[in-house]
């Protein structure tokens, strides 16, 4: 298992998009990790003397109107973003793959029912779901995570169902049944392995999407609550000064863009590395003796 994980990592690093994605995603992880032990300033400390401090040695990214250090806020914001994105994506993976299997494995009537239910739920916007949850339970990081995870999971289920059906109809599944494999083994060894490339790519898109959605929710005031720094809230707080201090908006904006890009590229790399057919094959060897 660790051996195959290492091979996968090597494969990701081997592709150009995978490498760039790994570097960008790694940067976010490092930023989040560093923020746990060190930030130049307390990101929530108000310092009137530093109001709109310029970019420089004292404040690397400058400071906002209240004199809060922007670099420290971006660092801590990376942590918020990462927690929400990873947790939401994990929920999406479970919900999505679970729904896809529920919509393919059971007897036809049940499976089609689930599939239609997914189609109906798909029409419900994620942002609206998040707002409803926030209205009922109060806006917090967790309502954002659940809303993004469930919403994206339904979309993932829709996409994955087609894949799962294709795999279940394949001759190798019939061959596995003729070899005595039960449904559990077929799902574990054949279905999950063969839908994995699609799921990986989708999850990497969802990872990026949840960064964006979290920013949007925080921007609208439904996400991360007030004092905790988040990229979305930084954007909404700085927005009124867009024409006066455009540079200050660059930092959280750039952070969001690079993170989304990094996650998507990483997903591409994972897909290539995880599929034996796309992996660069060693020179054709003769298998016959």
């Amino acid at each position: 298992m660790t051996g195959s994980a290492r091979a996968l990592a090597r494969g990701v690093w081997g592709s150009r998009s995978g490498r760039l994605g790994a570097v960008l995603s790694g940067l976010v992880v490092v930023a989040a990790a560093v923020s746990l032990v060190w930030t130049p300033y307390d990101p929530t400390r108000v310092d009137p003397a530093a109001s709109w401090a310029p970019v420089g040695t004292a404040h690397w990214f400058g400071a906002d109107r209240l004199g809060r250090d922007l670099f420290s806020q971006v660092l801590v914001g990376a942590r918020t973003t990462l927690v929400v994105a990873v947790a939401a994506t994990a929920i999406a993976a479970v919900v999505g793959v679970g729904l896809a299997l529920l919509a393919t494995l059971p007897p036809r009537l049940v499976a089609e029912g689930v599939a239609h239910l997914v189609d109906v739920l798909l029409a419900f916007p994620v942002l609206l779901l998040a707002m409803v949850l926030a209205a009922v339970y109060g806006g917090s990081r967790w309502t954002a995570i659940v809303a993004i995870g469930v919403g994206a999971g339904i979309g993932l289920g829709r996409v994955t169902r087609g894949e799962a059906r294709r795999v279940l109809g394949a001759d190798y599944v019939l061959a596995a049944r003729a070899a005595g494999a039960g449904t559990g083994r077929i799902v574990r060894r054949h279905v999950l392995a063969n839908i994995a490339p699609t799921v990986w790519v989708q999850l990497s898109l969802i990872l990026g999407l949840s960064v964006l959605t979290e920013a949007a929710l925080s921007y609208l005031g439904f996400g991360t609550a007030a004092p905790t720094p988040s990229w979305g809230r930084m954007l909404s707080e700085l927005q009124p000064y867009l024409t006066l201090r455009p540079l200050t908006l660059l930092w959280p904006g750039l952070a969001v863009v690079l993170t989304v890009l990094g996650f998507n590229l990483l997903g591409d790399g994972l897909r290539e590395a995880g599929d034996p057919r796309l992996r660069e094959r060693p020179a054709e060897r003769e298998g016959r003796t």
Partner: peptide
């Protein structure tokens, strides 16, 4: 081509 799982 179809009766062998491509990922096995």
């Amino acid at each position: 081509a179809g009766s062998l799982d491509p990922r096995m």
